[in-house]
Design a protein around this nucleic acid. Sequence first.
DNA 1: CGCCGAGTTGAACTGAATCAAGAAACGTGG
DNA 2: CCACGTTTCTTGATTCAGTTCAACTCGGCG
Lengths: 189, 189
Amino acid sequence: MGIYQYINEKVLGNAGGDLEEVQIFPTYRMKVKKNEVVTRFGQIEDKAYFLISGIMESAIEKDGELKIISFTFPNNFVCSYTSFLLQTPSEIQSKAITDCEIEYFFKEDLEQAYKTSIVANQFGRYVIEQLFISKLKRENDFLTKTAKEAYQDLIKERPEIVQEIPLNKIAKYLGIQPESLSRIRAEIS
Amino acid sequence: MGIYQYINEKVLGNAGGDLEEVQIFPTYRMKVKKNEVVTRFGQIEDKAYFLISGIMESAIEKDGELKIISFTFPNNFVCSYTSFLLQTPSEIQSKAITDCEIEYFFKEDLEQAYKTSIVANQFGRYVIEQLFISKLKRENDFLTKTAKEAYQDLIKERPEIVQEIPLNKIAKYLGIQPESLSRIRAEIS
DNA sequence: CGCCGAGTTGAACTGAATCAAGAAACGTGG
DNA sequence: CCACGTTTCTTGATTCAGTTCAACTCGGCG
């Protein structure tokens, strides 16, 4: 799947529909190797990325330590959103956890499309709505769950994360130390 | 300020511009008394609310306890977003902390406007972008700050909250118990 | 074979929760 | 305007979840 198909299926709801109509801005492709950094701290982001294959992580930094805010699997967007939207220095670093193939487009082209295309606007709105919902869920988790509950729910709700991603990264995603996650795992098995 | 002016100024960037053009869907007004609940747990939300005057809180529930996810001040939107967007039962309760005046509109009318109006789409996109950015910041806070840091930063960044909202609600917003906040306050003064 | 990153385990420590009680501020009716 | 009940805020003692730092195990890879 690529961005145009994503728009057709997810945004417009017509699987297998006319692809011409949704080519609202140009997109490009690139490949990145495992551990390669795609978006850097401090950089002003002018691109948004769509993951074709592989797994990526997005992280923020505090006192030299990385805290992971999301893992991205294929057919989802990766971006330093605040930087992309407000053109401020990025507080997010996105990195390939495995070899990845990425499709991307430029903010400039998106903005241009917004001016004339309803589909472009629907697309932008849809993507950010999904992201917002995921962050609402995460806020809910932080406010209501212990580390143990959070991990157990992650196993149920995002098994792909637990299966494919090393435990120290999962810990940093849950907001705890790897040692704590290790103890939690010992406890529940 | 009302929704149309919000669209003109914030979304379109032309303060004092032509107001006719942005009346893309009908809006309504209502008044609610202090402590009145506006959106209920379990309800499917068909309206979005814009706060004209007063202060509101939005909260989720866990084990009979309320956890506050946001305080809303005038000229901002309040909504059970996940419910509004996905038409699922609301996990959010929104309540007036003071007497409030509220402008609102229906999802149905918004959806209709999305089909034909670029401005409507830009509006929907802009609102959710702002909300998403605020949740990203909140995620950042949960991952990187101790309760003490979070409270000190709140004093700096959202003084209106600290001044106008009781401490037990602020504690529930920061994800700690009122007693802990009280101790933190004793410590830093 | 030896190294290195990933994961586990132990012991001491700390930030925040919990439970219980009391003080201060608030508003509402008499 | 005072009295009373309610809500808001504080303080104390104890418990607990998760951190920190250190050491050790295991599996993969050059």
